[in-house]
């Protein structure tokens, strides 16, 4: 793979993972209910950092797909699922029960196989 493609791929993984972690941080419990909860979330930086990551990810993904066929893009995108799982464990102390790990890896491999066959 050319260096640009690798860089764009890595940027996509980092932005996707960091964006999802930001949303998780923004959605912390006990912020209230309904509109009050959304106001509380809007007053903290995390939701905006997450939205920023999404916009960046969208642009990086478009650039990536202009160099790589969509099916390969989907195949490589399945790594993001594993990255978010590992990051959730590191930053939010999420537990890895064996069944949970198997489930996440099955979903990631399924997305990869769909990419291979696309």
């Amino acid at each position: 793979m050319p260096a640009t493609v690798v860089l764009l791929w890595l940027a996509n993984i980092v932005l996707d993972t960091f964006g999802q972690l930001s949303f998780k941080a923004a959605a912390a419990p006990a912020l209230g209910v309904g509109l009050a909860r959304w106001k509380a979330m809007a007053h903290k930086p995390w939701i905006w950092i997450g939205v920023g990551c999404y916009i960046g990810e969208f642009l990086v993904w478009l650039a990536f797909l202009s160099l790589v066929p969509l099916s390969e893009g989907v195949l490589l995108g399945s790594i993001n699922i594993v990255a978010v799982m590992v990051a959730g464990r590191i930053f939010f102390a999420e537990k890895f029960s064996p069944l949970r790990t198997v489930g996440i890896l099955l979903v990631a491999s399924g997305v990869a196989v769909v990419g291979l066959g696309g």
């Binding site: 999802q20 959605a27 912390a28 699922i81 978010v84 959730g88 939010f92 999420e94 949970r100 489930g103």
Partner: peptide
């Protein structure tokens, strides 16, 4: 709404 309680790793998957 889901992320208020759901862990991010399994939810994203």
């Amino acid at each position: 709404a889901l992320l208020e309680h759901a862990p991010i790793g399994p939810a994203f998957a």
